[in-house]
Each structure stands twice: as structure tokens, then as C-alpha cells.
């Protein structure tokens, strides 16, 4: 259902998330997994069909279209550890002490929840409804805004990739395309062992076989 909404109907992820009350990251993951499933089906790859059927019977299933209970909270805001302490801030009674002021009181870099919302367009929609905009119109604006933000994000990603690509000079031979990047071989840090330094340094022994050093990769792909 989610895959259909995203891939066939072309709905923005934020709108799908709001409609079915499913976290945005989960929406993205569902689409990703379904794409893999479809590819594997096309390739006739082995799948665990009887296992999947058993699991679908054992694990409770959520019905997204029935509006009984939202599947999961979609507007999660992470609780910053700075905000977990108790503060005593003297404030005059006449002053309007808002969420923004509270965030400021916890620390200069602490953001108020308004800035941390995953789907800020939802708040805008609610505000519009409070102002008297009809529901249907507000929802249409919400859809438009979410699509816009998604397009903007995709555009910026594309731009970054293009910028990175432009930094490389390419030499196209018949068989290979050589991509050459500029590196500063002097930028190796204080001890000559900076993480992103290039190449092997004369006289600096490898410590990759030292005892107690963590060698498991921290990220893949």
C-alpha cells in the first residue's frame, strides 16, 4: 500500500507518512525493501515464502487504512540530554515565556521543538485550519508544500553530487574512464596519521595489527 502510494501515485514521503500515520523513515524503508523484493522476483531469486506466510500469521498485522489507532507516532522529537536537567530560570510574570525561550535557557545551541519537527508542514496546515482555511484547501496546500520540499531536497542532493563530480577530472580512454581527484598530501595532521590522509608515510609504521584497536568497520556502503 505504501509502496503503491509512493512509487505508483508519486505521493511525497511526508504526505504518505501523515496519511497512514507511519514514520517517514519507515515509509522510505518499506519502499526500499519492496523494490528489492520486486527485483528478486524478476530475477527469480530464492525467497522464503513459507516462512513469510508463517510470520504474517504469528506477528500482529496493522491495518493502515482503518482509522482506529495510529500505527506509530510520526512527530517524534528527540529529547536532548541538556533538556533533561531541572532548571530554575527567574522569569517575570508579565513575560510570555515560550518554547523558544525555554530552549534558549537550556543552551544556546538547543533547538525548540518547532524547529525539530520532522514534518513542519503539518503544523503549518493546522495553523491554517485554525485561521479558518477550509480543511480540503489546507490539505491541498500541505500536499503541494511537501512535494516542493522533497523536490528541493532532491535538487540539493543532485547539486552536491554534481559539485563533487566536477572536482574530478576525467580522462576517457577506450577501455576505462580515469577519474582524477586533487589531494593535498601535506594535510596529514599533527602526527601524520590523520584519518583521511592519503598514502603511506615513510617511517610511520602501520598500527593496524596492534592489540586492542577496533578494526570493525563503522559504516558500510
Amino acid at each position: 500500500m505504501i509502496w503503491e502510494a509512493v512509487m505508483l501515485r508519486g505521493m511525497p514521503l511526508k504526505a504518505v507518512s501523515a496519511q497512514y500515520q507511519v514514520d517517514m523513515r519507515r515509509v522510505a524503508a518499506v519502499v526500499r525493501l519492496m523494490e528489492i523484493e520486486k527485483r528478486m522476483e524478476r530475477e527469480n531469486a530464492p525467497m522464503a515464502l513459507p516462512y513469510a506466510r508463517a510470520i504474517s500469521r504469528l506477528v500482529p498485522r496493522a491495518f493502515l487504512d482503518a482509522d482506529e489507532k495510529p500505527f506509530e507516532p510520526i512527530n517524534d522529537v528527540h529529547v536532548h540530554s541538556f533538556t533533561m536537567q531541572q532548571l530554575f530560570v527567574p522569569v517575570s510574570e508579565s513575560r510570555k515565556f515560550t518554547r523558544k525561550d525555554a530552549a534558549k535557557a537550556f543552551g544556546d545551541h538547543i533547538l525548540p521543538p518547532d524547529d525539530k519537527m520532522r514534518i513542519p508542514e503539518l503544523v503549518d496546515m493546522e495553523r491554517a485550519i485554525l485561521k479558518g482555511v477550509p480543511q480540503a484547501e489546507a490539505e491541498a496546500t500541505f500536499l503541494k508544500k511537501t512535494a516542493q520540499s522533497e523536490r528541493r531536497f532532491a535538487g540539493s542532493q543532485k547539486y552536491i553530487a554534481a559539485q563533487k563530480d566536477a572536482m574530478k577530472s576525467k580522462v576517457d580512454t577506450e577501455r576505462f574512464e580515469f577519474r582524477i581527484e586533487d589531494f593535498n598530501s601535506e594535510a596529514v595532521g599533527k602526527k601524520g596519521r590523520a584519518r583521511n590522509a592519503v598514502g603511506w608515510r615513510y617511517g610511520a609504521p602501520f598500527n593496524d595489527r596492534q592489540r586492542g584497536l577496533y578494526k570493525i568497520p563503522t559504516s558500510v556502503g
Binding site: P73, V77, K100, P113
Partner: peptide
């Protein structure tokens, strides 16, 4: 994590 209800956020500023 805490769920922030958009309707509440729109109506009140805290």
C-alpha cells in the same frame, strides 16, 4: 523521544 502533536503546536506556543 516525545511525540509533538502538530495541532497542539499550532494552537499554543508553550
Amino acid at each position: 523521544a516525545v511525540n509533538m502533536d502538530p495541532a497542539y503546536m499550532a494552537r499554543y506556543d508553550g
